[in-house]
Amino acid sequence: MFEAKLTEGLILKKIVESIKDIVTDVNIDISPSGISLQAMDSSHVALVSLNLSMDGFEHYRADTNMVLGVSIANLAKVMKLADNNDQITLQADQEATHLKIIFENPKTERTTEFNLNLITIDSEHLAIPETEYSSVVTINSGEFSKICKELFSLSETVQITTNTDYVQFSVEGEVGSGQVRLGHNDSEKKEDQTILEVSESVQQQFAIRYLNMFNKASTLSSFTRLCLHQEQPLVVEFKIDNLGVLKYFLAPKISD
């Protein structure tokens, strides 16, 4: 038996919106301590990893580990039934064939229920090693979103360069070339801060199209954390207050 109730259902709605363009069918892992999922996109270029702790739920019960195979596209359609102020409850029996999703609005007394059919997914076994990232950049999520969006109109690829003084996003295209450079800024106004933790400088190229997809999660978190290592994929991380973390992994583009 699994049951989890989230008071701020909007968070779950936003999470589904933030991953639905990247992954289609996903195995959701339910454990007594929380909910997690990990899945690659069909081109194997990007990976989504979500971890939600039971502590963030108003009520959480999972007697055993369970795997729920879900079509994210269909889950997104069901989530449209939820009002932004709804509480959301997820329920599944042992050996479940469907996931029951309940939306409740205590103010308006409206309740919506949907039984989403589960599917069997042959998922790849992913193993993400613990990695020490040599550059970690914490940046306002809205600002990072805007930088990626505007640079995409100028080029398909961005080169991210880090060093102890700044992080630089540079593009080169038919229009011309240029860069946005952000220095370390620990100003009192928290939302303006850009925090650089660089032990080794990194220079890598990435497809901006994917960064734009990841940035749909910017409404979940005030800050985006970029974790870089010269020999590793980029990690774009959004902390969800009191609940968990949504991470995206992106393979670099390699010059020949």
Binding site: M40, S43, V45, A207, K253
Partner: peptide, 14 residues
């Protein structure tokens, strides 16, 4: 422009 790499060599368990 660089060539797009895949995540498989990094993360796919064999």
């Amino acid at each position: 422009l660089g060539k797009q790499h895949s995540l498989c060599p990094y993360y796919l368990a064999r």
